[in-house]
Design a protein around this nucleic acid. Structure first.
Length: 448
RNA sequence: GUGGGUGUAGCUCAGCUGGUAGAGCGUCGCGUUGUGGUCGCGAAUGUCGCGGGUUCAAGUCCCGUCACUCACCCCA
């Protein structure tokens, strides 16, 4: 049955070398998350549709429902989670009695959204999420802390220049209310399109939504404000709008910017146009763009949610941020050629002189592995040229020749890149640290 | 869900106004029993997305369908 295999769009599947690159990135993320004191959890892929639904105007349409094929009855009761925050909130409620608060966890798992795939947008994608959640109230300083964790991760990955844009919804809400605008969410949504449709487009939509000319002008003026320091506060004040929430938001955002600039200079910018689609955010929101192509979309987003997790009696406010691993790697690996230094973990290929001496080669491999060196024995006692080629094609840096062969010279190991071949003892030889595991390699950048 | 584009070898594509399928790259083999990367020679692989129609004849025209892709929506 030779049915043609065709790809399904919106899914990322890597070839071995690229998968190794992905694993290196994931290992780095995990390592840094743990350095900052986050513990790992996993949640099941499915939640009840009831819990997933209702988080944003159109978000419901994107939920994948799950049902048994054998079950002819209509509606799905379970759905695949579309992010990691909603399942986490449920997990906290379910385990509130066993968790110690404030609880900080990381979670690296796929999420699913049933939308039309596009560049940088997948139906199945990996997120690396950190959240801090507490009972009753949550101190503001965590909102700056999360930025520093992300900055630490990105400092260890070859992602190039980026900026984390931060806003506080209270600024927008207070400002809008101060102006007499009632539909805060709707206004946020329109203003969020500023990049795409421009100031004139936004103005038009605002006027259609019932804003006065003056209100539209003020909304646009607010959205245009973006500063790398706390200068945004004075710029907002200069617009002359006053509201309690506005004051609160400005103070909070200013504090975040100050802390971020001290510990991770040049990373964070206060950007009053950032809104974000999910409705559960109540204060600070984050969005992260690559400087070389902001239009690619956010590669790391999150925010504060004060009321997502509640059991009716207690509320668990939280703040979280999520690295969009699939989107980030779609750019770095698929588009820009980032990959791994080899397509296999193997550091050493042990050549086989003839099938009779395969055991000698296996002993060498065992000795190397016992000291943590990923090692493979050649599949065939082919001519040495073939065995070297076997290693070279896979990017394996070293080939080991056992001395049991014809010339009795003793064991030797050859570095395929330099061609150097030296005597070696399988009980003590080790490759340079840099060659022990595959590493990330950027494509040769043409000298510009 | 709405609208546009595309669909030929593993990959990138060529194939003019219809006349029996091509290139480059890659893959594999060989280059006189062992040390690769260069080079030379050679080989394999296509229901030309699928179905129908027009025609003596369709990769090439028409209709449908599916897939991929881009934009909108929304978002990591």
């Amino acid at each position: 049955m030779a049915t043609k295999v065709t790809p399904i769009s919106g899914f990322q599947e890597w070839l071995p070398a690229d998968r190794i690159a992905e694993q290196i990135v994931l290992d780095t993320i995990r390592e840094v998350f743990e350095l900052h004191g986050f513990a790992s959890i996993n949640t099941r892929a499915m939640e009840t549709v009831e819990r997933l639904a209702g988080q944003g105007e159109d978000a419901d349409k994107e939920i994948y429902g799950i049902r048994r094929l054998a079950d002819p009855s209509g509606a799905a009761e379970l759905g695949l989670h579309f992010d990691l925050t909603v399942p986490f909130a449920r997990y906290v409620l379910e385990n509130a009695g066993k968790l110690t608060f404030p609880f900080r966890r990381y979670q690296i798992q796929p999420a699913w959204r049933g939308e039309r795939p596009q560049r940088g947008r997948y139906r199945e994608f990996l997120q690396a999420d950190i959240d801090i959640i507490d009972v009753g109230s949550l101190p503001d300083h965590y909102e700056a802390e999360l930025l520093l964790v992300v900055a630490d991760v990105f400092a260890r990955l070859p992602i190039g220049d980026y900026r984390i844009h931060v806003n506080d919804r209270k600024i927008c809400e207070g400002f809008y209310r101060g102006l007499g605008i009632e539909d805060v969410i709707g206004t946020l949504r329109v203003v969020d399109k500023l990049d795409k449709i421009g100031a004139d487009g936004v103005r038009k939509l605002l006027l259609e939504a019932g804003c006065t000319d003056e209100q539209a002008t003020q909304c646009l003026a607010l959205a245009e404000i973006s500063t790398a320091d706390t200068g945004f506060v004075d710029q907002v004040r200069a617009l002359g709008v006053t509201h309690e929430l506005l004051d609160e938001g400005l103070a909070k955002l200013a504090a975040i910017i100050e802390v971020a600039n001290e510990h991770a200079p040049g990373v964070v910018v206060a950007d009053l146009r950032i809104a974000r689609g999910l409705d559960y955010y109540t204060g600070t929101v984050y969005e992260t763009m690559l400087e070389r192509e902001p239009g690619y979309g956010s590669i790391c987003s999150g925010g504060r949610y004060d009321a997502l997790a509640t059991d009716g009696k207690r509320t668990f406010p939280g703040v979280g941020i999520s690295i969009g691993v699939s989107r980030l790697l779609g750019k770095l690996i698929t588009e820009e050629g980032l990959t791994a230094s080899r397509e296999t973990p193997v550091a050493v290929l042990v050549a086989v002189n003839d099938e009779e001496s395969r055991r000698d080669s296996m002993r060498v491999a065992t000795a190397l592995r016992s000291r943590g060196i990923p090692t493979l024995v050649a599949p065939k006692a082919a001519k040495f040229g073939k065995q070297i080629q076997f290693a070279d094609r896979r990017g394996i840096p070293f080939v080991w020749f056992t001395g049991a062969g014809a010339d009795e010279k003793g064991d030797q190991v050859k570095d395929l890149r330099s061609g150097d071949q030296v005597s070696a003892d399988s009980g003590s030889w080790a490759p340079p640290e840099a060659d022990l595991r595959p590493s990330l390699v950027l494509p040769e950048s043409d000298a510009t």
